[in-house]
Nucleic acid binder design. Structure first.
Lengths: 236, 236
DNA sequence: AAAAAATTGTGTGCTATTGACACATATCAA
DNA sequence: TTGATATGTGTCAATAGCACACAATTTTTT
């Protein structure tokens, strides 16, 4: 029995998290100001090295918990970033994870302790290494997947109104959507349950609060949606 | 300036390739019979360790070229597989790559030399490590993406007929499609160029040979298609 | 107290696309 | 010449998409 593969180089493996949140108006990204070398003082995704006996997703969730105090975060693996010189200190392969959190749920003290801050998409500063590329890929992933799967709900509180949901989609796609068509589409999926409550925070007509039907959500995750109006109606 | 990150474990990084081909009737997977330990004699995806100064995709293409003799293979990264004990010898992180090739284009001698063989999807033997999971994920990826993007063409020769393309889609989705509706949909994309030739190999009516309009292909890659009839017509 | 402003809920009609299905055409074999 | 098989094109009803109008609710203003 072999105990090692001979003659091969072992390299460092890290995990970086692209963390999206929604404040009701804008889509935001949570990043940290590094207080360690290299690139100390510059902005970076939250990340860390993988532990010796730790699975990838476990490592990502440990890092996310560390920063936000949250445990049940929606994460998907984005992929591995392995360019030889992406880290100037030593070759490091990073597995990027895409995370969606409810921005009002997290531990704000932990975020402060890590020198972390939420940035609107259009105000994100330059990031270290290849983190800009990771963010860009994560945003594409979000736009691509939110049009086909009901993942947007991960960014909202348990109970939400249709206008809130619409604002989220408008923020994700940076476009205006028709209120009436959006409402019809979203209700026709049958994924929303009327809680019987109304949004008491509104200053005008109080919108109905809904919650996600989690059973149907699981079943329909792969049934294709199309929330975003077809950008190219006549396949020209 | 630092030269190494202290106190962190370095691990082996490998690449495994999930290689799909289409023989005109069936979708097939190319796998190898291992002639080295561990798991010698068992079936496995084609893979190998990443070289010291090699980028991930370069490593995958090196491995693909090694097996098939081909250079311009369509590859996408599927993701990193990093479970602690996925390789019994030593912890190894594998980055899986999804590859589509024209089955009649490759170097059959090289394939034989590697003890490799094409298997129909329904006849794939059990594979080593977590390779079954990789194949399953790759197949999901293919089904998911072929419905939205024109990647299916990667599996066909430069010139092909609409009935051939239809058979490919039927193989991918393991379902029958309506000839007339399929033809209408595919032609309405404007992605196909009539070469003026006809399929001389046919024994009955010779179908028109088309080729892909590569300029439009690039432009339309992200314009959503929907080749597969809606599985769930009334979003119920 | 009534009107205005803002926001939310629901409806209508036109058009393009979809999916089910029929018929005409081309090629080879019997 | 006829039959068998495969290919190309057409029709039509049902549906879904999109543009748009109107009614209802709540707070603020007059």
């Amino acid at each position: 029995m072999m105990t090692r593969y001979p003659h091969n180089t072992r390299i460092l493996v890290a995990t970086d998290c692209i963390i999206f949140g929604f404040d009701g108006e804008q889509l935001k990204l949570l990043i940290i100001k590094r207080n360690f070398e290299p690139e100390e003082g510059n902005w970076s995704l939250m990340g860390g090295f993988l532990h010796e006996n730790e699975d990838l997703e476990v490592g990502a969730k440990r890092i996310l918990n560390d920063l936000t105090g949250l445990n049940n975060i929606y994460v998907e693996q984005l992929g591995a970033f392995g360019k030889v010189h992406r880290d100037p200190v030593e070759r490091t392969l990073s597995v990027a994870f895409f995370a969606l959190i409810n921005i009002y749920d997290h531990d704000q003290e932990a975020v402060k302790a890590h020198n972390a801050k939420w940035f609107s998409l259009k105000e994100i500063p330059a990031l270290i290494f290849d983190h800009d590329e990771m963010v860009s890929m994560a945003l594409d992933h979000l736009r691509y997947n939110a049009a086909l799967h009901p993942i947007g709900f991960e960014l909202l509180p348990e109970e939400f109104t249709i206008p809130q949901l619409q604002k989220l989609y408008e923020a994700i796609y940076d476009m205006q959507l028709d209120r009436r068509n959006f409402s019809r589409k979203i209700l026709s999926t049958g994924l929303l349950i009327d809680t019987g409550w109304k949004n008491i925070h509104s200053t005008t007509k109080k919108a109905i609060m809904y919650r996600l039907d989690k059973v149907k959500y699981q079943k329909k995750f792969y049934a294709f949606w199309n929330f975003i109006p077809n950008p190219n109606p006549n396949h020209g």
